[in-house]
Simulated assay, not measured.
Amino acid sequence: MSLLFPGTSHSSLAESIAKRYKFTLGKCEIKKFSCGETYVKILEHVRGTECFIVQTITKSANDDLMETYLLADALRRHDAERITAIIPHFGYARQDRRASLGEPISAQLVAKLLVASGVTNIITFDLHSDQIEGFFTTPVDNLHCYQLFADYFQKKQLPDPVIVVPDTGAAKLADRLTRVFASPMAILHKTRPAHHKVSHTHLVGDVKNKTVILFDDMIDTGGSICSAKNEVIALGARKDVYVAATHAVFSGQAYGRLESADFAEIVVTDTIPLAEKLPNITVLSVVELLYKIL
């Protein structure tokens, strides 16, 4: 028997995974003390049992990670046979290098803390960069969602579609999508003069009179994706611009920006629960992608 312990960040996804793969939902207590510290207690006998933790990283990234560390540590101390952390959205993934002097490599530190807490396997979706797998000393399964998006958009039969990525960092991921979706790709060159500030300078590819699908691994504040829409329309693309992104972080002014941008449709996955649901947002489930692993 396998036990699946849900963190508090995405209980509905944990329940869906447990139901689909016939896992037993493990009982645990998770609460906050008045001082802000997190308390975790496992309420199951786990000795010799394969255990899973489901905890995505939301806008409460530090609390979500601390819950994960404490759940893993509690399971390890009670002699669980194996502890697999299913982290649909891996937080701190954009901090995978030192972009300037004085910065840490936060993604590597998060990886080390997960291993130190007792996690023996990691399952995640569309890491911001593949190099993050190398930060772990345990097996990592980085599942890709491009097939979900390809299947969805193929059914829509859009006229003359083109996949456009808002920066070169997403090009490798988009290339996988274009191979399956059988459409051309264009790349916008992006610069960041400061955090959460975006400037697009030029486009490599052709979008004139085409239906653009803007594709990225995540949407955070919405600045990049909304700027990209304005750019492709200025270059002659059709006005019905679509968006596809794996992780709907949607922080800060994201909802307001996305609503004002008036995209034809915004297609995301359920790696992160949505705080709001705009009429033009479609959510695809990643549960079936776990089939080959679970």
Results as ranks from 00 to 15, higher is better:
residue 136 F to A: 10
residue 94 R to S: 13
residue 22 K to F: 15
residue 115 V to P: 03
residue 75 L to V: 02
residue 79 D to T: 13
residue 115 V to S: 10
residue 182 A to G: 01
residue 265 E to L: 00
residue 187 I to C: 13
residue 97 R to F: 07
residue 43 L to C: 14
residue 244 A to V: 00
residue 69 Y to C: 03
residue 233 I to L: 11
residue 240 D to G: 00
residue 211 T to C: 03
residue 279 P to G: 02
residue 179 R to G: 01
residue 238 R to T: 11
residue 2 S to V: 12
residue 105 I to V: 15
residue 166 P to C: 06
residue 221 T to F: 07
residue 169 G to L: 04
residue 209 N to K: 05
residue 165 V to S: 15
residue 190 K to W: 05
residue 66 M to Y: 08
residue 17 I to E: 07
residue 102 G to N: 03
residue 20 R to E: 15
residue 210 K to N: 01
residue 210 K to A: 01
residue 238 R to Q: 11
residue 189 H to L: 14
residue 192 R to K: 13
residue 3 L to A: 06
residue 8 T to P: 08
residue 172 K to E: 15
residue 90 F to T: 08
residue 3 L to S: 05
residue 142 N to G: 08
residue 102 G to Q: 01
residue 29 E to T: 11
residue 187 I to K: 11
residue 32 K to T: 13
residue 112 K to H: 12
residue 110 V to N: 08
residue 182 A to M: 10
residue 120 T to W: 05
residue 269 T to H: 01
residue 1 M to I: 15
residue 104 P to C: 06
residue 146 Y to F: 11
residue 216 D to E: 10
residue 2 S to C: 14
residue 212 V to H: 00
residue 125 F to T: 08
residue 19 K to R: 15
residue 95 Q to C: 07
residue 64 D to H: 09
residue 129 S to F: 09
residue 243 V to K: 09
residue 223 G to W: 07
residue 259 E to R: 11
residue 168 T to I: 15
residue 93 A to W: 11
residue 138 T to D: 04
residue 122 I to W: 08
residue 289 L to I: 06
residue 10 H to W: 06
residue 280 N to L: 05
residue 218 M to E: 15
residue 130 D to Q: 14
residue 141 D to G: 12
residue 116 A to G: 01
residue 212 V to N: 04
residue 231 E to P: 00
residue 223 G to E: 13
residue 151 D to W: 00
residue 20 R to C: 09
residue 216 D to W: 04
residue 26 G to T: 01
residue 14 A to H: 08
residue 212 V to P: 10
residue 241 V to Q: 00
residue 194 A to I: 02
residue 6 P to T: 05
residue 149 F to S: 03
residue 123 I to F: 09
residue 152 Y to Q: 02
residue 104 P to F: 06
residue 198 V to H: 04
residue 97 R to H: 12
residue 13 L to P: 08
residue 131 Q to G: 06
residue 264 A to R: 02
residue 56 T to R: 02
residue 71 L to T: 05
residue 260 S to W: 10
residue 37 E to H: 08
residue 272 I to T: 11
residue 4 L to R: 10
residue 255 Y to K: 12
residue 187 I to G: 12
residue 132 I to K: 10
residue 49 T to W: 04
residue 69 Y to G: 01
residue 95 Q to Y: 09
residue 62 N to C: 09
residue 129 S to C: 14
residue 212 V to Q: 06
residue 230 N to T: 13
residue 246 T to P: 11
residue 213 I to H: 03
residue 146 Y to V: 08
residue 166 P to S: 00
residue 254 A to V: 12
residue 290 L to P: 13
residue 217 D to A: 04
residue 135 F to R: 12
residue 245 A to D: 08
residue 181 F to K: 07
residue 101 L to K: 09
residue 92 Y to R: 05
residue 80 A to P: 07
residue 279 P to D: 06
residue 185 M to P: 01
residue 24 T to S: 14
residue 17 I to H: 02
residue 91 G to V: 07
residue 240 D to P: 00
residue 188 L to W: 07
residue 231 E to H: 07
residue 61 A to Q: 15
residue 241 V to I: 03
residue 48 G to A: 04
residue 56 T to A: 04
residue 43 L to F: 01
residue 180 V to R: 15
residue 40 V to F: 03
residue 108 Q to S: 11
residue 185 M to N: 05
residue 101 L to F: 13
residue 270 D to E: 06
residue 60 S to P: 06
residue 219 I to M: 07
residue 271 T to L: 01
residue 145 C to P: 11
residue 34 S to R: 14
residue 52 F to C: 01
residue 261 A to Y: 01
residue 61 A to K: 14
residue 205 G to W: 03
